[in-house]
């Protein structure tokens, strides 16, 4: 499999992107996904139709061409719940469209890309290689919120 990054044309605009500390690894991670739109659940934030959040171009622009994943189900759930609490004017449907309604367990292999920058929230960023299809890495999916906004786990 190619070791060119899927979004190389964007990454090359930023220094040390992805950082050299990122590494290929066999690792199981958890990602928010939309159970009814799985094929749209693996797009980096910067490639969604919305403007990047933040206040200037130093705000996580490299990371935002990667994908957010978490090291445990519990960390993924806790951060999702906090985000939901702060969804402001977004409708439930809009929030689900952006962040999903489920947590998927992904079985990552070294051929899929590089991962790094584990922070205290258990959050990591994954930069995929060209040819990676993360849908194929899904081990299972757990729905976490119903259509009324009630958490079910």
């Amino acid at each position: 499999m190619s070791k060119v990054f899927k979004y190389q044309k964007y990454l090359q605009e930023y220094p040390d992107c992805p950082p050299k500390s990122y590494a290929e690894t066999n690792f199981q991670v958890f990602r928010w996904v939309n159970e009814n739109a799985i094929n749209k659940s693996f797009l980096p934030l910067n490639l969604l139709k919305y403007p990047p959040m933040g206040f200037d171009k130093t705000d996580d622009m490299c990371k935002s061409y990667g994908l957010s994943v978490f090291n445990t189900f519990e960390n993924a759930l806790a951060k999702y719940k906090k985000l939901y609490l702060m969804k402001g004017g977004l409708s439930h449907e809009d929030f689900i469209e952006g962040k999903g309604d489920s947590i998927a367990l992904l079985d990552l292999k070294i051929t899929h890309g590089v991962i790094g920058d584990l922070n205290k929230q258990g959050h990591l960023t994954l930069h995929e290689y060209i040819g990676t299809d993360l849908i194929e890495t899904i081990v299972n999916i757990t729905k976490i919120i119903d259509k009324h906004g009630k958490f079910i786990v």
């Binding site: 919305y50 206040f55 705000d59 957010s68 906090k82 402001g88 004017g89 977004l90």
Partner: peptide, 26 residues
Amino acid sequence: IESPLLTLFKHKYNGELYFFQWIDRD
């Protein structure tokens, strides 16, 4: 969480503190 959601700013001239809280987007 992934991006800033609540950020502390300071008024440069009077020193007052302000919260900037993300509330919506289109």
